[in-house]
């Protein structure tokens, strides 16, 4: 029992770096390093070696914040391994959606009767990507706007230095929410497409990964969590979130608060009024606030404090709601 648990754990840890499905796949990390070095050379004239040294500096990679990232990563893998079998499965939800559509619309069309195979594949790949990206934006926005969720999401924002592994600096409660979001998005996409297109449905992939996700990852997605502020051409930053835009999202500057929630696409932020374009030559400081608080990188603080804070936020929201309801009742009289 313990032996299989340990071996599963080690396999999963290794998979994070060896599977092209994972953001921190070693291939994507190397691609990000190369892109970063090219950028530093082009923008600041840095030599190859100094660019590399700057990006891999121990001041970033062995800071107390980065060390907390690593601890969280190791602990979360174990927790998620234990929690994930308890979550609702995509298959169950997709089947339910399929059955609901069947009841509402009637019997599904014969496979091949609506669209040719290639267009079903393209549509499915695009639909899943858009729905997934929107869901990421939306949940991320709620995590910032709802105080009881912000309590948990703060763990991610408490990073003072950022490395690509900061992407995994997540409170486990947030991890569960991400997993449920993913289940929902997969189930909707699969249930819907399987109903209308049956056996024609397939995903366009590269190395077994959705081609659009692969493109995002291989073109330097990991630089979002880094100190290399690559900004795009301004009109492009309204469509795609650049690494510099995501770094603004992590900035302690109050005017940067609650901006750029998007993962890949910037259009959601643009439509929702939370888009902030990158600022050339503005040095950024990352974290929750400019002042460093004692013990802010301790695991105990990072894992436990969100629960009390979230509870307090919920309690005060409840009181507020009750007061409003009472006032409404008085007015009704």
């Amino acid at each position: 029992m313990i032996e299989t648990l340990v071996s599963d754990y080690l396999t999963e840890l290794a998979e994070m770096f060896t599977s092209p499905r994972k953001r921190v796949f070693v291939g994507y990390l190397v691609a990000a390093l190369l892109i970063g070095m090219l950028w530093l050379r082009w923008r600041f004239g840095s030599g190859w070696l100094s660019g590399c040294r700057q990006m891999l500096s121990p001041a970033i990679w062995w800071s107390s914040s980065a060390r907390a990232d690593y601890q969280i990563l190791l602990l979360n893998r174990l927790l998620m391994m234990l929690i994930s079998p308890l979550l609702l499965s995509q298959v169950v939800l997709a089947t339910l959606i399929y059955q609901q559509l069947h009841g509402l619309i009637g019997n599904p069309p014969l496979p091949g009767s609506l669209l040719p195979d290639w267009s079903v594949m393209t549509a499915f790949t695009l639909f899943f990507f858009l729905l997934d990206d929107f869901a990421r934006y939306f949940l991320h926005m709620l995590m910032h706007r709802w105080p009881w969720l912000w309590a948990f999401h703060k763990v991610h924002h408490s990073a003072r230095t950022m490395t690509p592994l900061t992407v995994l600096r997540t409170h486990p409660v947030e991890g569960v929410l991400f997993a449920l979001r993913s289940v929902l998005v997969q189930a909707i996409s699969i249930g819907l497409f399987l109903f209308f297109f049956g056996s024609q449905v397939d995903l366009i992939t590269v190395l077994g990964v959705n081609v659009l996700v692969f493109t995002f990852n291989v073109t330097g997605a990991n630089l979002r969590h880094s100190h290399v502020a690559i900004g795009y051409w301004k009109p492009l930053e309204r469509i795609l979130i650049s690494p510099a835009q995501h770094q603004i999202h992590h900035s302690v500057e109050p005017r940067h608060y609650d901006k750029n929630f998007g993962a890949v696409l910037a259009v959601w932020d643009w439509l929702g009024g939370s888009l902030h374009l990158s600022e050339r030559d503005t040095p950024l400081c990352f974290g929750l606030a400019a002042n460093v608080v004692e013990g802010e990188q301790s695991l105990k603080q990072l894992y436990l404090a969100p629960f009390t804070e979230s509870y307090q936020a919920l309690r005060s929201a409840g009181r507020h709601w009750l007061r409003r309801a009472a006032r409404g009742a008085v007015r009704m009289r």
Partner: peptide, 22 residues
């Protein structure tokens, strides 16, 4: 009737619980 569902889940990433942040 739902052939292909598990294959698609596998392709999209059967293990949804990766805890990757944005």
């Amino acid at each position: 009737v739902l052939a292909g569902m598990e294959k698609l889940v596998e392709k999209l990433g059967a293990k949804a619980a990766s805890a990757e942040n944005d």
